[in-house]
Computed example of a mutant assay.
Amino acid sequence: PIVGLEPSCLFTLKDELPSLLRDRAGKVPEMAMLFEEFIAREAAAGRLDGLKLKPIGTKALVHGHCHQKAFAAMGPVQTALKLIPGLDVSVIESSCCGMAGAFGYEKDHIEVSMKMAELSLLPAVRAADPDTILVADGTSCRHQIHDGAGREAIHVSRVLERALA
């Protein structure tokens, strides 16, 4: 497997590489997967049965990166997080965070970017209890959450790392 952390980068291998290289892309697109897809696959196959995870909180609130949503990759995020004992996992029903890579940092786009974030993402983050773990796999999504709501969101891999016994 080719395991990636950043959804926009990983889906370049899965989605865009075949269009660019056609038959020369080989098995790369089918072997490429997000970290949480790999974890969910390994858990389903029973290869994580000896993994010891400890409780680290009671609630996790997840914002899905646009690529995760577009390619139906949100289920594995939830599956990976639900490996943590006692963690209630909820997904924020949101559209794009508004950042779209560097789009939201450009002076001509920042207002539009923040309006997009304010549709549902930032209000949900602000309404979350202070001890709720905020999860966002996209780098730009995490920056938008921090800049717009003053909260830190972390990648699912870091959440699992915290739960390692």
Score class of each variant (00 low, 15 high):
residue 3 V to I: 07
residue 4 G to W: 06
residue 6 E to H: 01
residue 6 E to I: 06
residue 11 F to K: 01
residue 14 K to Y: 10
residue 16 E to H: 10
residue 16 E to F: 10
residue 18 P to M: 05
residue 18 P to K: 11
residue 19 S to N: 13
residue 20 L to P: 08
residue 20 L to Y: 10
residue 24 R to Y: 08
residue 25 A to T: 01
residue 25 A to Q: 01
residue 28 V to F: 01
residue 29 P to Y: 05
residue 29 P to V: 04
residue 30 E to K: 13
residue 34 L to D: 06
residue 34 L to F: 07
residue 35 F to M: 02
residue 38 F to K: 06
residue 38 F to A: 11
residue 38 F to R: 05
residue 43 A to F: 02
residue 45 A to S: 12
residue 45 A to V: 05
residue 48 L to S: 02
residue 49 D to E: 12
residue 51 L to F: 09
residue 55 P to K: 15
residue 58 T to S: 15
residue 58 T to V: 14
residue 60 A to S: 06
residue 60 A to V: 13
residue 63 H to Q: 08
residue 64 G to W: 13
residue 65 H to K: 06
residue 69 K to P: 08
residue 70 A to M: 11
residue 72 A to S: 15
residue 81 L to W: 14
residue 82 K to F: 04
residue 86 G to D: 08
residue 87 L to G: 10
residue 88 D to M: 15
residue 100 A to G: 11
residue 101 G to Y: 02
residue 102 A to F: 11
residue 102 A to R: 10
residue 105 Y to I: 08
residue 105 Y to V: 04
residue 108 D to Y: 08
residue 109 H to Q: 11
residue 117 A to D: 05
residue 120 S to R: 10
residue 120 S to Q: 07
residue 122 L to I: 15
residue 123 P to R: 12
residue 123 P to E: 07
residue 125 V to R: 05
residue 131 D to A: 10
residue 131 D to M: 06
residue 132 T to A: 06
residue 133 I to G: 04
residue 135 V to C: 03
residue 139 T to K: 11
residue 140 S to W: 05
residue 142 R to S: 02
residue 143 H to K: 13
residue 146 H to D: 03
residue 150 G to M: 03
residue 150 G to L: 05
residue 157 S to M: 03
residue 158 R to F: 00
residue 164 L to S: 06
